[in-house]
Amino acid sequence: MENLSNILGRMGGVYLLPAGLALGAFVLIGAPASWATLTIAGLSMGMMVFLMASGLSLIFGLMDVLNFGHSAFISFGAFVAATVLSLLGGWVGADSVFLNSMALVFALLAAVSFGLAAGWFFESVIIRPVYHDHLRQILITMGALIVSEQIILALWGGTPITVLRPHFLEGAIILGNVSVEIYRLFAFGLGLVAFIGLYLVLNRSRIGLLVRAGVENREMVEALGFRIDRLFIGVFMVGSALAAVGGAMWAGYETLITPALGGEMMIVVFIVVIIGGLGSIKGTLLGAIMVGLTANYVGFLAPKLALASNMILMTIILLWRPNGLRPAVK
């Protein structure tokens, strides 16, 4: 037993969990083609959720701020991107990959800029006065969430909005007898790029070094001569922009969005960061992949359980590791 856990530990420890999950699902599902489709769907969902969750996790890790308003960035990202895509409707539907991608780039850029601006506003106006006060932080960010959701309702109305997808992301490619939606591949790729980018910045740059140090001990970072408040606002803006991009990608994935989107995703995002361990980027990725896979496998195997599947997953993991799979060092 001791040996086994050592071997597992050396092979990647908790990072083996998604592989184990996929293996278990393979046995239960039995049909390789369905399994492959579900796995790809799960991975791409996981990556989109990672985009949404990474900011929350980073912000909490560094600033000890849990932003309940984070889901507003997700919703706004989705609606801003959907609006830009519908404004550029001609480009979106055109038979030119260049025009398609320009529409996509503009939509994502709009979501990013919105996320950056809203993040700046949130950090400096709403959250800064209540640092170090968790109770008021939770209340105030919750209040900000309510107001943001109402603004979305006032601007876009309560009826579902159809999201146009750039033409070149439509359709599927057939590999053997497995059909893979191109959009899912794209979502997976974008999420992966974001993860690698974040990973490199955190581990290879001086800013990243500061962020990692700040997660552990803010006071000491200040005592070494760095203005941590400036770091905070930067991280908050980037985290919010990531959430907006996640929301934008999710809008394209769902193709029909309502203002309830943010609230629904927020629960998933919370479960992801609780499972992964708040404050750790690798933990967040792990949690997101686990949640994405579980949602898709359970949705296929036992549709009635699909709803509660994430809660069950969270309960099991918390019973096993009360601080999540990969908590940041504190």
Binding site: F68, G263, M266, I267, F270, I274, L278, M314, L318
Partner: peptide, 16 residues
């Protein structure tokens, strides 16, 4: 564990 988990978990439970 952390008090902040509590807020998140209750929110998740309520929505379920």
């Amino acid at each position: 564990v952390k008090a902040i988990f509590f807020a998140m978990i209750t929110l998740a439970a309520a929505s379920v």
